[in-house]
């Protein structure tokens, strides 16, 4: 079953001069084909301005393509009649934790989505409780969001999306504004969800450490998909990633450096334990 699929997706916006006259078109997305199956954990990488966030906004029909097609759960996002269905099936978490919490109390914010969907009151309460429980924020239910840390706010935002019972969650740079602990907190929450709810997760980020558990990785640059593969394949192409203004985790970098110095290590090492293991093997063999 395909969850998100796009074909020759193009998105253009008008470039204007100082008086506001249209002087040309900018292509933020240029012929993107993606294919994400139900239950997958997919990461989309790219530097700031590569088009990755613009692509993400298509999955929720916040933006509609200027050319090509985007399907979410089999629905064409261009179809105005499907708008609310698309948004319900692909929930979205944004970058700035402050700017996406609507409620003045945590539980009311989580209830906002179901309220919009017209879910009956009793059912809303059940969903709010379940969602807050799955992100580990139940004890904060009657707090003001202003008193929470960045990581906690993002978990509330994730709960807010979960309460709409989507099939797919699109996280658009959810950790970009967080400190390392907040970042870990959010990524851990997402992994938990994947394990327990089998929901499709699409993570847009430029932090490479966050994608090592992904099933598929897409790399974007200049509106194009420039790399596609599993994390190991992608991370073995260090030089190419650097060209796209990206980075690899220190461990991958170190392994690469050692390889270039003649050590016989496998390519695309992602985790500390892997490198330590490989080096120990090598040590015993020599």
């Amino acid at each position: 079953m395909k969850m998100v699929q796009s074909e020759k997706l193009i998105f253009e916006y008008e470039k204007r001069d100082e008086e506001g006259n249209v002087i040309g078109m900018n292509r933020a997305i240029d012929g993107v084909d993606i294919d994400i199956s139900e239950g997958d954990f997919v990461a989309i990488l790219g530097h700031n301005g590569s088009g990755k966030s613009t692509l993400a906004k298509h999955m929720n029909a916040i933006l509609v393509p200027s050319g090509g097609t985007m399907w979410v759960d089999g629905r064409d996002t261009k179809d105005p009649l499907e708008l609310w269905n698309v948004r319900q099936s692909a929930g979205m978490v944004f970058q700035n934790p402050d700017n996406q919490i609507i409620g003045t109390v945590v539980e009311e914010d989580v209830g906002f989505g179901p309220e919009n969907l017209g879910v009956p009151t009793d059912e809303i309460w059940k969903r709010v409780e379940d969602s807050l429980k799955s992100v580990g924020m139940l004890e904060y239910r009657s707090n003001s969001p202003n008193k929470l840390s960045g990581g906690q706010k993002q978990r509330v935002a994730i709960a807010g999306v979960l309460a709409m019972e989507p099939k797919c969650i699109v996280l658009d740079e959810p950790t970009a504004m967080l400190d390392p602990n907040g970042r870990k907190e959010v990524i851990r929450t997402v992994q938990e969800l994947r394990r327990r709810k089998k929901v499709t997760v699409i993570l847009i980020t430029h932090y490479m450490e966050e994608v090592i558990d992904a099933d598929h990785v897409y790399v974007m640059d200049n509106g194009h998909i420039v790399m596609h593969g599993n994390p190991r394949e992608i991370f073995s192409r260090v030089e190419e990633l650097k060209r796209y203004r990206l980075d690899v985790p220190q461990v991958t970098m170190l392994a690469e450096e050692l390889r270039q110095n003649g050590l016989q290590l496998p390519s695309g090492i992602l985790k500390t334990e892997e490198l330590v293991e490989a080096l120990c093997q090598l040590n015993w063999n020599t």
Partner: peptide
């Protein structure tokens, strides 16, 4: 941002 977040939550 908020308008977008509200819309995306239907």
């Amino acid at each position: 941002d908020l308008a977008m977040a509200m819309e995306s939550r239907c």
